[in-house]
């Protein structure tokens, strides 16, 4: 018996979402009194794989194969299920990031397991979990009927914890390596904090009048260590790339801090950000609906407020 966690990696390093999932797996395993085991898919240094022990995993099965550096939900599902079989894992945990959303339901079907997609809390020993529903407007408490359970952990739901441990690494060669998805090109900007992993997000709307005015937004994001985001009109106008669009039809995020600049707060926008822990709204219109969903508000012109915010953050960072 064990709890298995899928470790999603990039360039040989576990993604932050997977560090959270490993932390979560270790806690679930602890409650059940069994070990937490990871399955690490893709080539990586032994040290990087061992370091998964730092999140509480006692062992990691490592598929140290370049082929697994690209993602194919079918092949990954078979590998995860084979590992679960080998380790006797009746509980499998995946982080519900982009790859996790693709693989979670597949693993559940293949294992004949129940699946909660988007669990946001730690389990009680009787496997009750909560999940956000209706685009953040309600919470559901769910319970498993099935013997086998797959839990899709919503990113940024629990903090990563470092235990200082080291995991035993065991090489693992899945039986199936029949990749049907071939990656042609990856288009990402290096050095940026990925929006879906970010703990702080600075977002701006059409009120900024044009893409040339995003310099101050990026500067504020830099001082805060935040990712940048935007509202739907801004993405539709091609002022900012599509992947920065947060809202119902864009990305749904739940950072610790969300700063909305010149965004009125339409319900479709709120649907993507209303699970943020702290929301700051800066808007010229005191009647903007976003203020109702905010924790802190400033009525003012972004072109005056944001440069002052940047200066205040510089002073704060210098004093730290």
């Amino acid at each position: 018996m064990s709890v298995l966690v899928y470790i999603d990696q990039k360039n040989g390093q576990a993604k932050k979402a997977s560090q959270e999932a490993a932390t979560y797996a270790a806690k679930v395993a602890d409650q059940l009194g069994v070990p937490a085991v990871g399955i690490y898919l893709g080539a990586a240094d032994a040290a990087a794989v061992e370091s998964m022990g730092n999140f509480g995993l006692s062992k990691v099965l490592h598929v140290n194969d370049e082929k697994f550096n690209t993602f194919d939900s079918g092949v990954f599902t078979k590998a995860i299920c084979e590992a679960a079989e080998k380790e006797g894992s009746s509980v499998v945990i995946v982080s519900l990031n982009q790859n996790g959303k693709t693989v979670g339901g597949r693993v559940a079907v293949r294992m004949n397991a129940g699946f909660v997609s988007g669990a946001s809390n730690l389990l009680s020993a009787d496997f009750k979990v909560t999940k956000s529903v209706f685009s953040g407007k309600a919470v559901a408490e769910l319970e498993y009927n099935s013997d086998k359970k797959v839990i899709g952990l919503s990113p940024n739901s629990i903090p990563v914890e470092n235990t200082g441990g080291s995991a035993a690494v065991e090489n693992f060669s899945p039986a199936n390596t029949d990749f049907r998805v071939s990656v042609k090109e990856v288009k990402t900007q290096d050095g940026e904090i990925p929006l879906t992993e970010a703990e702080k997000v600075v977002s701006a709307g059409r009120g900024l009048k044009g893409p040339e005015n995003w310099g101050m937004v990026e500067e504020l994001a830099k001082e805060l260590g935040a990712a940048t985001a935007c509202s739907r009109p801004v993405a539709d106008l091609d002022w900012r790339p599509h992947h920065e669009h947060v809202g119902q039809t864009g990305v749904a995020i739940k950072p610790n801090l969300y700063i909305a600049i010149a965004i009125s707060g339409a319900i479709q926008h709120l649907a993507g950000v209303n699970q943020s822990k702290v929301i700051v709204v800066i808007n010229t219109d005191p009647e903007a609906p976003f203020f109702k969903a905010a924790d802190y508000g400033i009525v003012g012109d972004a072109f005056e407020v944001v440069p002052k915010f940047v200066a205040a953050m510089k002073a704060f960072n210098a004093a730290k």
Binding site: K15, V183, K184, V186, K187, T188, P194, P241, H243
Partner: peptide, 10 residues
Amino acid sequence: EIEGGVEVVA
């Protein structure tokens, strides 16, 4: 969509 961008696949 992937973290911070897109991946082109066939």
